[in-house]
């Protein structure tokens, strides 16, 4: 470690970085995280619905082999470490974005890593819906699609919101890792600017900003989940 953490020079550098680099890095991290989560929800939500509805005694039973395949693929994607996954999806990034480096290119591995996770979270949320309510809807002549869109999903909105918040903070962590493949954002500042150039205070500042971001996401998500839950007497 060259020099002290709080030497005059390192504090000046950190302050400078805080003014010039960090604001844009926050934006990049925010944009990558939210966009990746949104895209992962678009893929993960229907898969999560299938995991519950497609079961043998679900509302829309699917062939057993299909369910086994779906489960196996999700488990497989979830078991690859993100660092490795980032590299493995290079061909896909090139195909979709045209490049494998840069901020936008990191969205591809983030989505690939996050959608199976979100599918599992959606699955657990939907399983919380009281089966008696689903039976009641069936007794009123609801089609399987109506049960999914008008009962299962709306009834689990509070739980879905808390779970998407969990996903969001996890993806925020992953996005910081993607600094390694040239993705922008706070992760890149912490690693390239701070760690590799021995400017540890910059690294610490970047990490603190990440912590604050996670806190904000989590608080907002929890507040939304609680506010949306009509089971609680207000």
């Amino acid at each position: 470690m060259s020099g002290k953490l709080f030497s005059a020079q390192s504090v000046a550098e950190a302050l400078n970085c805080l003014k010039t680099e960090i604001p844009f890095a926050i934006w990049e991290t925010f944009y990558v995280t939210v966009l990746s989560t949104a895209l992962a929800v678009v893929i993960g939500l229907p898969l999560g619905v299938l995991l519950v509805a497609g079961e043998k005694d679900g509302v829309l039973p699917l062939p057993g082999w299909l369910m086994k395949l779906l489960n196996a693929v999700i488990n497989l994607l979830r078991s690859v470490p993100f660092l490795i996954l980032m590299i493995m999806v290079f061909p896909l990034s090139r195909l979709l974005i045209g490049t494998t480096v840069g901020t936008t290119a990191t969205i591809v591995p983030l989505v690939v890593a996050a959608f199976p996770f979100i599918a599992r979270l959606v699955e657990s949320s939907l399983r919380e819906v009281d089966p008696n309510i689903i039976e009641a809807a069936a007794s009123m002549g609801a089609t399987p699609m109506q049960i999914i869109t008008k009962v299962m999903i709306p009834e689990s909105v509070p739980s879905l919101l808390s779970n998407v918040t969990i996903a969001l903070t996890t993806i925020l962590g992953y996005s910081a890792m993607s600094g390694i493949i040239g993705g922008g954002g706070l992760g890149q500042i912490a690693i390239n600017y701070g760690y590799y150039r021995y400017k540890y205070l910059v690294m610490v500042v970047a990490v603190i900003v990440l912590i604050v971001l996670v806190q904000i996401f989590q608080s907002v998500g929890t507040a939304l989940a609680v506010k949306s839950d009509k089971r609680l007497k207000h």
Partner: peptide
């Protein structure tokens, strides 16, 4: 099922 409707022990209303 629109002609033969049902009520339940636990009411089974949509809570949201």
């Amino acid at each position: 099922r629109r002609e033969v409707t049902m009520i339940f022990q636990q009411f089974n209303l949509l809570m949201q």
